[in-house]
Amino acid sequence: MAKRIDVSDLNVYYGGFKAVEGVTMTVEPRSVTAFIGPSGCGKSTFLRTLNRMHEVTPGGRVEGKVMLDDQDLYASSVDPVAVRRTVGMVFQRPNPFPTMSIYDNVAAGLRLNGVKGRKKLDEVVEKSLQGANLWKEVKDRLGKPGAGLSGGQQQRLCIARAIAVEPQVLLMDEPCSALDPISTLAIEDLIGELKSKYTIVIVTHNMQQAARVSDRTAFFNLAATGKPGKLVEIDDTQRIFNNPSVKATEDYISGRFG
């Protein structure tokens, strides 16, 4: 059920400001692709165009093509809401719904999209929480508020919530940057397991994390503040970290930059 993403010559704008310019890349199914680069280089912005979340920001628009297998995400007949059901997202800060219990948080995606039936929901909630390695920790307190969990548990709850709607692709926008090392390790292990089922794209500021979890790595950079961010190169993670073909990548990775 994982799908390939083909991006060709994509420009992203916020109002009159060009945030990202000319990205062309392929994201392989059932693999982890990491985006690295300095702050403000547009990697998060670009990530958000993969499920049309950038349109939530007023003035956000794109030029170019994003193909999910053979479906153009930006074709005029495509509903952005449907895109987001297919391409899920996990955010930087854990954001469980504060009015809902753990159970309701995981079931939220299905429930809000009209799925009813306790039995079906029970199944999905257990499966998703197990998928997010959280089931054992919370199975006795599913009725308790989701906001009462620790930060790392909350983030895994958010991952469970995202995979409960069975997306084809999972986008993760710095999912560990608000977490301690132990929770980070738990999430990284989880990413390693999830990639057997999903296409995963992860933005990270932590290069060791990119090296640990990803199969392919894309390096983004920007010429100067106020200029649009660009994709410098994308390659196998091993190559990017050991023998990158562009000098800027090597400079960034070896810490001589940014």
Partner: peptide, 15 residues
């Protein structure tokens, strides 16, 4: 209400 909650909901494909 934090914008993150709205985004979390949109990201689940909720209108």
């Amino acid at each position: 209400v934090p914008n993150e909650l709205r985004e979390a909901s949109y990201a689940l494909g909720v209108p």
